[in-house]
Nucleic acid binder design. Sequence first.
DNA 1: ATGATTGCAAAACGTTTGCACACCT
DNA 2: AGGTGTGCAAACGTTTTGCAATCAT
Lengths: 182, 182
Amino acid sequence: MVSEVNKRATRQLAAVYQALQGDHSHPSADEVYQRVRRTLPRISLGTVYRNLQRLVTEGKIRMFLLGERIARYDPMVAEHDHFICQRCGRVEDVLLERNRQVNLAPLVNQGFTVTAHSLAIHGLCQKCGRVRPHRAGARRVPKGPDGRGESTAVSPQKGEEVWGVDRKQRKLRSAEELNKQT
Amino acid sequence: MVSEVNKRATRQLAAVYQALQGDHSHPSADEVYQRVRRTLPRISLGTVYRNLQRLVTEGKIRMFLLGERIARYDPMVAEHDHFICQRCGRVEDVLLERNRQVNLAPLVNQGFTVTAHSLAIHGLCQKCGRVRPHRAGARRVPKGPDGRGESTAVSPQKGEEVWGVDRKQRKLRSAEELNKQT
DNA sequence: ATGATTGCAAAACGTTTGCACACCT
DNA sequence: AGGTGTGCAAACGTTTTGCAATCAT
């Protein structure tokens, strides 16, 4: 009623959709763009974005932001969880049988409406887990070769000691105090 | 050995750190900036970013990207999960007693190294859940008033039918076919 | 003194948008 | 014909970075 306007089907829309089918590698918009370009060399990145967005709001694909700043897209499939590699940034689907049965009742009782939930598991993927990473460039979250650095709520890197912060509000006497325990 | 360089303690670093202590509202870098500015009016946004980054790699604070493209920061605290409101984008800490006991053994057996996991629950927070949202602007993920639009792997909006995609690879005959079921 | 850290401004990055033109229906 | 969707390029918001000046050690 309000405005189910005449959506049109175009070559570009189909190509974008097609590029995602059967693909669970969570391509970014740009990766989709590169793919679609092979079929439609004149398509623009903007169009890819527009069509991805359209497919998302139509519920035909899924978009998520998971520990990185770039959006990734997925064909619609059954619920699953995600493993995010801290080193290479790769996101893999994982199926953990038992964890779907999370008890959300407490939330609902507090007035939340829950529409979805997904578990993000952080760590090192099979490839990255093998390499022992020279514990050198630990200062800076790397960004070059492996593409992505940080991930969602990464726990302290092994080898970096966590600061002994006590949980309650705490005032620093001086700037020095902050540095002391590093 | 390699390069545990002389890190220095500065007023700015302390202020950035201090701005987060006892704050569980998940401020963005810019919010931290605004806060710190009250004490150090001449601090620059770049410095805030640099210090936030440093504190993160030192394990003194935590950064996460959760359903939005902007980074949010948190003082280091015990593990908890996150509720992300689809409407207003607010991220709230939640404590779900039973869900910590996820069985990660299958993953570990597959060669993954798990360092952290957190559950992201998507839905409507107490405030947003009350309002019945004019089911009109459902086409476009809103971006104005409520600040954020999309969230991590949001499931199809109520009222939008999901396309009946069959799971296996599928070729479109034509562009039209894509539009048909909308 | 020396070099880590700052402020500033420009660049980078992924994404969105305004426009005139092309194409679908 | 009419208007949705396109290609292009410019704009966007967040984050990063190069530089000379400043400050902690």
